[in-house]
Design a protein around this nucleic acid. Structure first.
Lengths: 144, 144
DNA sequence: ACAGTCGTAACAGCTAATGTTGCGACAAGC
DNA sequence: GCTTGTCGCAACATTAGCTGTTACGACTGT
């Protein structure tokens, strides 16, 4: 399966901003977050752009600009983040439509789609259980 | 997320072989399955090769060669298929290791890994619920 | 020996994520 | 108003994985 780190990096960024604000700062820059996540500031801005579209963060421009979280970390779940940064479904159907003359080719897509829908629903429930506050707490509990 | 149809095609192939055998045939060829799934025989052979490594199918060579299912469809779950054809984890960590000097960079990976492990476990339980027999029954129940 | 099918390598094409550069837009501070 | 730091965004290169295709040797029933 595709090595997709979007959810990981987005959670990293949110936890970083949340902690930084908790330490008294107003906003965090994409540069700072990129350094912590070992990636490029543009990658961070793109991801945070998705999160802004979902209303989870906001950005300020000009000098002293940067990003801030709009809600309490307690109220943001990984499902919110997942839906903001992951566009497609977990599993895909056939690229080209299967042979409609074949019994299996005819019935396989609705059958699999029902299964996949159920699985995605379960995944969502699972992600909705975990808040960013949980993540940050767990991060800070790591032994040094 | 990557549009990955491996699980779909593998389930399609297994259901096809299972039904074909149920109709009295000994083996199915990759050519036949590829036609039903609208893809290339080599793609099918590659996927069935993974399934053979997992012991779910076997192949015969020479004239009159082809593929057959080794177990009752009732005893094969989508989890068996998933594990046979999907190598990696659902979600990936950072490409490059995050900054170990940063509190978040230091603790984020174990924290996310625990969450992802739990999610994959749930996914597995969900996939283990569905047998190929269920899939085939559902396929055949499709209205024409 | 022939014919049909698998097994596998090699390569091209496509898609998505990621990395990088560049530059205009914007706003705080001087 | 100028400078400065940061975002917004476009453009492009790179990488990785899956998919499609061709080719050819290996194998086996007839």
């Amino acid at each position: 399966m595709s090595a997709n780190s979007r959810l990981t990096i987005a959670a990293h960024a949110l936890a970083w901003i949340g902690l930084y604000q908790r330490q008294g700062h107003e906003v965090a820059t994409s540069e700072q977050i990129a350094t912590s996540a070992s990636t490029n500031p543009v990658v961070i801005r793109r991801l945070l752009g998705d999160l802004r579209r979902a209303g989870l963060v906001e950005s300020r421009r000009g000098v002293g600009a940067g990003w801030s979280v709009t809600r309490d970390l307690e109220s943001i779940t990984l499902l919110d983040v997942y839906e903001a940064v992951e566009p497609g479904p977990l599993f895909a159907m056939h690229r080209a439509a299967p042979d409609p003359e074949c019994v299996v080719g005819y019935g396989i897509q609705p059958a699999m789609q029902r299964i996949y829908d159920g699985i995605e629903e379960t995944l969502r429930r699972e992600l909705a259980h975990v808040t960013l506050e949980d993540v940050l707490r767990d991060v800070l509990a790591a032994p040094r």
